[in-house]
């Protein structure tokens, strides 16, 4: 959020009638906002409830794989909030989206900007968020430590995106880390005149765009996750013997190969057998995947196979 001298206005929200949340490992998206007024519409749209126990940063979770955290002001806080949310969640592939307000010298208030370049003014570090084909206006952004009132560059100004992006892209490919800003102040309507009670309204103006970005990220993340999650045979085979770290990696590779080749059934059959040790199991798995389909079918009585 582009910090102002006004006090934060808390919106009252009735979250009592929420259903049970269920972690979704595929197509999950984590949202990071700076302050509560920016969070309020998102909590509504995605039906998010606060996670307990409350930690350093407030976190919210929905039943559809969407989570949110409120970071407070500044790049350092934004990075810490990303870490905090990540550490609270079970291991999974998740996309990240920073939503918030920003200043811009020329763009009209309420304009939504998908950020394609982030410069951290203090460190000089630059980040390059992806540019998906969503038809949204793009902009570069400068993350500053103090509110920018002069808008010297043709860019959006915020205080969190640099910290957010740097940290989130340590956790997942940066192709799944987006930043979307809504213009809250400009030269004609400077920061000092920003009424924080208007912030939820500004965010709501861009509901269609934010939902489109979240849906795009969910699909992108789901595709990524679906080919990188471990096949079902892996835990079954892993449980049969003691595996060293190296042999675990070999087993993972064989299970992925089995899935790619449509030979999961062969590995599933192996999971019903007994093995002397992990070495013997790996050898059997390799042989199973190497055997030509017809010979293997004759030997095992399998009649057909394919992804289950």
């Amino acid at each position: 959020m582009h910090e102002t001298t006004h006090e934060t206005t808390h919106e009252t929200m009735n979250k009592s009638a929420r259903g049970t949340t269920r972690e979704s490992v595929n197509g999950a998206v984590n949202l990071v906002v700076a302050h509560r007024p920016e969070a309020a519409p998102l909590l509504d749209w995605f039906d998010l409830t606060e996670s307990r126990p409350r930690g350093r940063f407030r976190c919210y979770q929905g039943g559809d794989g969407i989570a949110l955290t409120i970071s407070g002001t500044g790049a350092h806080n934004a990075a810490a909030a990303v870490r905090h949310l990540h550490e609270r969640q079970p291991e999974a592939h998740r996309a990240w989206l920073n939503v918030g307000i920003a200043g811009h010298r020329g763009e009209p208030l309420g304009t939504g900007l998908l950020i394609n370049r982030i410069e951290h003014r203090r460190s000089g570090e630059r980040h390059w968020p992806p540019v998906p084909r969503l038809g949204l206006p793009g902009s570069s952004l400068v993350s500053v430590d103090k509110p920018e009132t002069e808008y010297p560059e043709d860019a959006a100004y915020d205080m969190e995106a640099a910290g957010f992006f740097a940290e989130a892209s340590r956790l997942i490919a940066s192709d799944l880390v987006y930043v979307f800003k809504i213009v809250s102040d400009n030269r004609a309507s400077p920061l000092a005149e920003l009424d924080l009670r208007r912030v939820p309204e500004l965010i709501r103006l861009r509901e269609r765009e934010i939902r489109a970005i979240v849906e795009h990220l969910r699909q992108r993340c789901a595709r990524f996750a679906s080919c990188h999650t471990m096949p079902d045979e892996y835990p079954l085979l892993l449980g049969k013997c003691h595996f060293s770290a190296t042999r675990k990696a070999m087993l993972a590779g064989l299970c992925r190969r089995g899935r790619a080749l449509g030979m999961q059934q062969r590995l599933h059959t192996l999971a019903k057998q007994r093995f002397r040790d992990a070495g013997a199991l790996l050898q059997a798995a390799e042989a199973a995947l190497a055997a030509p389909a017809q010979a293997r079918e004759a030997a095992t009585g399998e009649t057909g196979e394919g992804p289950r």
Partner: peptide, 12 residues
């Protein structure tokens, strides 16, 4: 830069 995914980038 690090942390890029070639496969995902092919789509955009």
């Amino acid at each position: 830069r690090k942390a890029q995914n070639f496969r995902m980038q092919k789509d955009s």
